[in-house]
Design a protein around this nucleic acid. Structure first.
Lengths: 355, 355
DNA sequence: TTTAGCACTCGGATAGCCTAAGTGCTAAAA
DNA sequence: TTTTAGCACTTAGGCTATCCGAGTGCTAAA
């Protein structure tokens, strides 16, 4: 049985109205207020229903004579089945469409731009992510002769991402030597993950290179560097200061919890990498482990060939304006995704840089 | 006359002791406490001196019957001439030396590692920066043939940083065509800044390429992209949550000020880029415009060929443990700089990535 | 010139009181 | 059987009054 299936329509209406109201003003909601919400019954009835909803775990009472507040389960049910889709206003759409300007540029810039935009439009902080690529392989090596002491090693990774290194040699090299080097690399370690590059393999390559075996070690170091560039991906926040505008974070404890969580970049990266959802995901703090209670994250990942290559998201108090935020994130994500799908001149960028 | 020259030795001693004490516990310091600080006179005398120091602008009084607190000018004089050098303990040195492990890796990783380290050792947030490169030029173009529809364009920038793009062509290309393309690019736009690449120049290049003129436009787009990659540099914070451990930031107004400042990345980038100081710089909030009052920044930049290529810094309350933080930043900066100076295989990374 | 003593000031903590909001329960009404 | 009205009860938060301590400035003596 799905969560919330045990609720009567009236209970659902009450729950929805209550959560909407709580999101609006952040304070516990009482039965009296709810009578003005088209439920169609008196405060006493609503009290009874609320009391039951509390027993069922959808509501909580901060203290005896306060109104009710949604519990994690309440929020969960709300975002899963209760909330009404928010339809963007013409004005909002226009703003969002300016985003298209960034279309010309690369994924990470678009993600960044999207983050800024959402922050300014929703007043919640955003997070933009480009996750680390694990177990990358080099599909093809290319060398380019510069002069007798220098050459460029270009590595074509999966997804036609190119990573290059400018390599300065201690010995003199010729184009012929470089071509041999290139062949050796392609024959031995193309399509291999870093853990498959073993010492015997390296020895074999040095052997293959003959007198120029000294090249291998300095090249291998660079290859390894590029492959295992676990470069944490990029994770950026925009508008963290907005958090302070929400009363739940004037409690320094709560604030610290959330900031600490945000500081643990690996955790968020994991969240992103494990997000198999094709739609917008909503994480509610305290529901599952890591995320700090009192806060929620709305996240949309971008995938290329089924692999997560980035994400944008919104971090805010648990009483976020889910419908609106979801609508915006969805819209921008669609814009970004569409540019990902039709690469003419390929422009995917690796998560980090080269030399 | 330099700031602080008008102070007697006793005044200096009092000022130093007062600031040390204030940094320690964050509360206004009274005359009575200072008698225990080896000043060698009674609280009454100290009171008189403090009164004068206040008139001179080095101290402030939050209210009539509180102790004194250093003013901006007080802090400025303190960090400039008063504070005692902090000598790192053996234990601290050991921890810092672990840093050397990162030596193998690249600048940005070292910077990041240094940030983490300082945060954990000082309990202040750190900021790590790689500024944007402005007005980059491509010193040399290289093309690498992949197949009849694809090639790699490698651009060697100043500092032997290589940036590559995997380019997919709409027309078929041969190695010969690519070589011509390469020549055209090198003849016309090597060593030029993006603003020097004018439309007539592009027309000329298209002309030079003859029948393959279609290549130019798609290549130019990539070149422009790389050159003007104003990619904001990377600016990352570590341990922002630590701020909350300092009482000055339990005032939400102060906290918001600082967080807003931290959010305005351009401002900090400017600070970094304009930092001509070869030593550690100390910025005291409220002293000069941008930085939020109540906070200070300690910053050390890294330069290559006189150009700022990165920085690490510490952000904290104005009553920071300057001597200790300065010592640590200085030490780590030295470690990082030393690896910057002896590049064997060149490994400088561009501020961002390639395709 | 320094010190001791003393009256004065003011912020912060504590306690007590009151109010408003909201609840649960019971009994009447539909 | 379900809904409503009424009422007693609970409790957080705001308000005021009060007290205490820390620290000052001033004056007079050393």
């Amino acid at each position: 049985m799905r969560i919330g299936d045990d609720l009567s329509d009236r209970k659902k209406a009450i729950l929805r109205a209550l959560i909407d109201a709580h999101i609006e003003n952040g304070e516990p909601v009482g039965s009296k207020y709810l009578t003005s919400c088209d439920i169609g019954c008196s405060s006493a009835t609503i009290r009874n229903e609320m009391s039951e909803l509390e027993q069922m775990g959808y509501l909580e009472q901060p203290h005896t004579s306060a109104g009710r507040v949604p519990s994690k389960a309440g929020y969960r049910f709300y975002v899963d089945s209760l909330m009404r889709a928010y339809s963007l206003t013409a004005r909002e759409l226009e703003t969002l469409n300016n985003m298209q300007k960034a279309r010309l540029s690369q994924l990470d810039k678009m993600i960044k731009a999207a983050g800024k935009l959402i922050t300014s439009m929703t007043n919640y902080p955003t997070v933009s992510v480009k996750p680390k690529f694990k177990d990358q392989t080099v599909n093809c090596f290319k060398t380019t002769f510069v002069d007798s002491r220098n050459f460029i090693l270009s590595m074509i990774m999966s997804g036609d991402v190119v990573r290059s290194r400018y390599i300065h040699c201690k010995i003199e090299v010729t184009e012929e030597v470089l071509n041999r080097l290139c062949g050796v690399l392609n024959n031995n370690i193309a399509h291999k993950t870093s853990s498959e590059i073993t010492l015997p393999l390296i020895m074999k390559m040095e052997n293959d290179m003959g007198v120029d075996d000294a090249l291998i070690s300095s090249v291998i170091k660079n290859v390894y560097d590029v492959m295992s560039s676990d470069d944490e991906g990029e994770l950026k926040y925009e508008g963290v200061d907005k958090l302070l505008e929400y009363p739940e974070f004037s409690d320094l404890g709560n604030l610290k919890d959330l900031l600490s969580f945000m500081d643990k970049k690996e955790q968020i990266m994991q969240l992103v990498e494990n997000d198999k959802n094709d739609n917008v995901s909503i994480y509610i703090g305290g529901e599952d482990s890591s995320l700090s209670a009192n806060s929620s994250i709305i996240l949309k990942t971008f995938k290329v060939d089924g692999k997560v290559v980035g994400a944008i998201g919104v971090i805010g108090p648990q009483r976020m304006e889910y419908p609106k935020v979801v609508a915006m994130v969805e819209y921008l994500a669609k814009c970004i995704s569409s540019t990902l799908e039709i690469p003419d001149v390929k422009e995917l960028r690796p998560p980090d840089s080269d030399t």
